[in-house]
Amino acid sequence: MFVWIIFAGCLGMCIGDQLRVITSCPTDDVSEWNKKHVGEELKMWWNSITPVHKQNFGFPSAFYNRQKKQFTTVSNSDTVIFISRELYGRKKLMWQEVDSEKNSGVIFGIATDTKFTGDDLTYIYPDFKTALVGRFKNGIFENGTEAVIIAERCYKGVKQIKTKVKNPEQIWKNDAHMINSTGLSPTVIDPFERKAVYVGQSAQPQGGEGLFAKRNFVAGDLVSYFAGVKTYEDNFMFDNLTVDEMWEAHAYYINFGDMSPSRWKVPVEMVIDIPVHLRGIESYRNTLAHKTNHLFSGTNTMFDTVLHPYHGPVASIVATKQIKRGEELFVNYNYDTQNCPPWYKKLWLKHMKKSVNKKTFGFLSNGFIE
C-alpha cells in the first residue's frame, strides 16, 4: 500500500516518464449502460488500451509487477497492465491483467485500494462474458460463484460492468496447490469450458471421442483448458510396464513444466496427466482439451499455457485460425517420431507418403519402419 501512495501522488504531480493510457472510452464522459454484445464490447475496449508517455494525454496508469508487488512504468514479462478511475468517495473502478501470458483473464473491482483483496471482486474469463465473483486475496481468486456479465458502460476512460450470479449452489475454490489430484470439482465442467466446447464422436477413422467447438473462435482465442492431474512421470510410468501398458499410461499427458514460463516456477519435470481411470467424461470433465484429436496437417489449434482462475498454471489449446461452431478441433501432438506410439508412427508414415515424393519418402522411412 505504501508503494501505491507514492505512485498515486506522482500520478497527480510528476512530469516526465509517467505512464498514461488511452482507450476507446472517452476520458471525460460516462455513457449509458449497454446490454447488447457485452462481451464483444468489453474485449474491443480492453484491446484498445494503449500505454503512452505523454503528459495531458489519456489518463494515469501503471504496470504492476506481481512478483515484486510494486507498480512501475516499465513493461516486461513480469508485469501486467493496471488501470483505474475514481468513482465516488475513495472508491475506484479498477482493472488488472492476471498475467502477461495471453488469455489468462482480467480482474475487475470497485475498491478503495489496489491490492485486489476483498469479498466482491470479479475474475473475467478471456471471452469477456463469463466470470467468477467472490473472494480474492492480493489478486488471487480464493472462492466464489459463476456469473455472467450482463451490462457495460464507459466511465471516464474505463469500463464499468454489471454481473449476474449463475449456479449459486456451485462454489468454486482455488485448488492450484493440489498435486496428484484432479482438483476439487472433477465432474463439474468449468464455466468457460461449458460454453466453449463439447465432446462428440470424432470424424477421424478410429478417432473415438473428439472435441468440438460450441461457438465461433478466431486465431489467438483460448478454446479449451487442459488441467487434469499435475504430477510427475515417476508416479505412473513404472519400469515394469509392458510396451503396450507404457503407451497406454503415456496417452493423455503433456510435458507441462517444459512449456511453462519460468516466472511461474513450475518444476521442469512436472506433467499434466489424465490417468486411465479418469479418461471418460463421466469421471472427469472439468476441462476437456485432452479430448482433442491429433492431425499432422489441417490442425486448427495449438498447445499453450495459461493461468486458470482456480487451477493456477495449466496447459490449454488456442485457435490458430478461424473456427466455426460445430467444427471438430485438432492439434499436432508433436511426438518424437523415433519414440512414439504405434498408431502415431503409422499416421506419420501415411502423412509423409502423401507429402513427399517416393524417393524422399524411402530415405526418410529407412530405419524407421520396424
Rank of each mutant, 00 (worst) to 15 (best):
V3N: 13
V3K: 05
I5G: 04
A8G: 12
C14H: 05
G16Y: 11
G16W: 13
L19R: 09
L19A: 01
V21G: 02
T23H: 04
C25K: 07
P26W: 01
N34I: 12
N34A: 01
N34G: 01
H37C: 05
H37L: 00
E41D: 09
M44Q: 13
W46K: 09
N47S: 00
I49P: 15
T50E: 15
H53C: 05
K54W: 12
Q55M: 14
F57W: 14
F57E: 15
F59P: 09
V74H: 15
S75F: 11
D78G: 10
D78Q: 09
T79M: 06
K91M: 14
K91Q: 14
E97C: 02
V98R: 11
K102H: 07
K102F: 02
S104A: 07
G105F: 00
F108I: 05
D113G: 14
T122Y: 11
I124E: 01
Y125W: 07
T130M: 04
L132S: 02
G139D: 13
I140A: 05
I140F: 10
G144V: 04
I150V: 15
Y155H: 15
K156Y: 05
G157K: 14
K166W: 12
N167S: 15
N167Y: 14
P168I: 03
Q170I: 15
W172L: 06
W172Y: 12
H177S: 10
H177P: 01
T182E: 09
D190K: 03
R194F: 09
G200W: 03
Q204E: 13
P205L: 08
P205I: 11
G207S: 08
G210C: 08
F212I: 07
F217Y: 15
D221P: 00
D221M: 04
L222H: 02
G228F: 03
G228W: 06
T231G: 02
W247Y: 12
E248W: 05
H250A: 04
S262I: 14
E269G: 02
M270Y: 01
V271N: 10
I272E: 03
H277S: 05
T292E: 01
H294P: 11
N300R: 05
M302R: 15
T305F: 05
T305N: 02
Y310L: 14
G312T: 08
P313C: 02
V314F: 03
A315N: 10
A315Y: 02
A319K: 05
Q322D: 15
E328P: 14
Y335T: 06
Y335P: 07
L347C: 13
W348Y: 15
L349A: 03
M352I: 14
M352N: 12
K353D: 10
K354P: 02
K359C: 00
G362Q: 12
F363R: 14
G367M: 05
F368S: 13
I369L: 04
E370S: 06
